[in-house]
Nucleic acid binder design. Structure first.
Lengths: 144, 144
DNA sequence: TCTCTTACCGCAATGAGTTGCAATAAGGGG
DNA sequence: CCCCTTATTGCAACTCATTGCGGTAAGAGA
């Protein structure tokens, strides 16, 4: 991972400014292991900076994503989750019956991504949205 | 497609009731070709039944999905789109740069779905969420 | 170090979807 | 055909996320 100076340089060279709020949001994402919601980030940020508005958190996540420092993906329907950009890319299988989620190594996605590239010239990012379906257990015994 | 009587029977045998509101929501989805948002459905329903509340529309879409008469998928991030359950299953490629969306026949999804089934016992539904990435044109010339 | 442009902030309002609740009405049983 | 249980409704309040706007402060240049 880059150090603080390199990161700030990267922010500035994109024409943006490094504010207290932006630093706090970035730090909160970096401290989280995986997949946190914007709301969780806002809560963590407000623990030390109570006056930072949720809208500022959302705007900063977007800005940091544009710079390539954080990125987001979708596990359950409709919910956006954020993580630092340098975690290894991977996919998710989410069972629509029991909600269980399984991680999928990037290598398992690559074959289908290559197929889409070849057939449609489309560079797919299969890690961005979870793959929904029915897991092995629920296919046998649907949950009550 | 089933006729009205069969549909009503199916609703009742699931322990549900066939109300004016439910009929209106189902009809609105059935009249739409593809992929309408709940909000669009609510607007259409209110054209003839002005007192039907949006929450009733949402709850009915959920109920009708549980019965298997309608289903939903996700194209752009976060937006839920509804369609009648008997449209042919298919996938979507959505470009995150220009927003263009391409339909993908179910056959193009089947290979990867089989692979996931074999490797993880997971019955994936790749049509549920759009596949995001970069389209051929944007890979060459990113839009301004 | 001071100035000045403008990126960014907090706030208030809005949009999409969800939830709790008291009132209503679907429809099976008598 | 009426009764009674309870699924469903409309409404109001709420959640998560986004947007418009006037004021603030980052940081490049003098």
């Amino acid at each position: 991972m880059e150090n603080t100076r390199q990161i700030e340089e990267r922010v500035r060279s994109s024409g943006r400014r490094m504010t207290v709020q932006r630093r706090a949001v970035l730090a909160a994402v970096q401290r989280s292991r995986h997949h946190v919601t914007a709301d969780e980030i806002a809560t963590r940020v407000r623990a030390t900076h109570p006056r930072i508005d949720p809208s500022t958190v959302y705007r900063n996540l977007e800005a940091l994503e544009a710079i390539g420092l954080v990125s987001h993906s979708h596990l359950e329907d409709r919910i956006t989750r954020w993580h630092r950009a340098d975690v290894e890319r991977h996919g998710h299988l989410v069972c629509r019956a029991c909600g269980e989620e399984t991680e999928l190594p990037a290598a398992s996605l690559a074959g289908f991504e290559r197929r889409l590239q070849a057939a449609h010239g489309f560079r797919a990012d299969l890690g961005h949205s979870a793959i929904v379906g029915i897991c092995r257990e629920c296919a046998l015994v649907p949950p009550e």
